[in-house]
Design a protein around this nucleic acid. Structure first.
Lengths: 205, 205
DNA sequence: CACAATTATGAGCAAATACTCAGATCTTGA
DNA sequence: TCAAGATCTGAGTATTTGCTCATAATTGTG
């Protein structure tokens, strides 16, 4: 029941331009529909309708409903890791405060687009073992990088690097998700400032 | 479609002992089933089966599936607010660090029982306007109390009391949820220590 | 233009599942 | 003891919804 291995990869590779276009329209529509109605009530027929295509076309590009969710989540994760990798490859600020600010800002910006969609994605992800796996890996990578950054910085004074890294990641990810997705969302700039202040004072000991 | 007002209150008041007992068994079974399978896959028939009663009996005490979720969430919220009120009524520690510790410990303990159930409850709550309302009210109260505590404490130095209070609440609630519900859960004691350290340094400025 | 490959259509199927109801069984109180 | 009310039963209904497939339309190619 919960261990069925369902395809998550597209059913076929688009060979014409209109095919790729249709694929995009499906994903865009799905993002809207899921954000508005949630995953369960976001039916595939509704997605097709919103995309302006027939339900049959939808199933030519996605083997099942979960695959659409998976694709949306994958994109978000890939965007995030790519942006983070780009940051890590370039020159980084010296001070721990500015260092933290750079990454907090990254997180905030990644969630400003559509906080409701993002929240839904992460909530529904546990439905699939494969997605759980993928999220777990990304999170572990983030914790690892954070630990390394903390470890190599002279200003940092914490009791347990591993716990500190986990706490930092959890705090940033979750608080950003939550505070931006609330009915009365917090101001993004202020959120960034306060969170940087909190984390900086924390890791400086 | 999504605006139908469904009953959430029990269908009848139990008048015999066995009735109240059945009600309890349903709720206990539902907690387990929801925690194991999630809300969508936690079917009412499965709940009834696990409770050792017939599906008909279930629907004599709960008008619909959402009402079961609502009852479970209500209990959690009521337990939490009651515990918090009890704390606030009694003598509180002087130092801000110990003050924060008391409340962080409360949050951690409230989620040690069944982190997966709690996570599921909060994820599925947005399905109902009434529950969203209730959660919002509890959260607003918590932020309010936190702001008052921070405002009246001489050690506290923060730029914006309101933002700080929101950040503190979000951090505690979410990080506790998340870190305890992970496949490799963080040690509760260590979580408490680190979180208290972070929050203390933050609010002391 | 002709023909094959690709893409689109949407009525309808199969399965899942929330929920009902007519009747059986148990409990209470006099 | 026994009737009335309370509780329980579970096969069945109504609805929703993910998804298929036979067919049509469109596009690329020689």
């Amino acid at each position: 029941m919960s261990s069925d291995q369902r395809r998550i990869q597209p059913r076929k590779q688009p060979r014409q331009v209109r095919a790729e276009l249709t694929r995009q329209r499906i994903l865009t529509a799905a993002a809207h529909v899921f954000a508005d109605h949630g995953y369960a009530a976001g039916t595939t027929n509704r997605i097709a309708e919103r995309a302006g295509i027939s339900i049959g076309s939808l199933y030519q590009y996605f083997p099942n409903k979960d695959a659409i969710l998976a694709e949306l989540l994958t994109r978000h994760l890939d965007d995030g890791t790519a942006a983070a990798a780009k940051l890590l490859a370039g020159p980084l600020p010296e001070s721990i405060e500015e260092l933290l600010r750079v990454f907090v800002r990254l997180a905030v910006e990644a969630h400003l687009d559509d906080p409701h969609l993002l929240r839904m994605l992460l909530e529904q992800a546990p439905r699939s073992d494969e997605l759980l796996e993928r999220i777990g890996r990304v999170k572990r990578d983030m914790v690892g990088h954070t630990r390394d950054l903390l470890a190599g910085h002279p200003e940092v004074r914490v009791a347990d690097l591993d716990t500190a890294a986990r706490l930092v990641i959890a705090t940033v990810e979750l608080a950003v998700h939550d505070l931006l997705a609330e009915p009365d969302p917090i101001d993004a700039r202020r959120l960034e400032d306060e969170m940087v202040a909190m984390l900086t004072r924390y890791v400086k000991g």
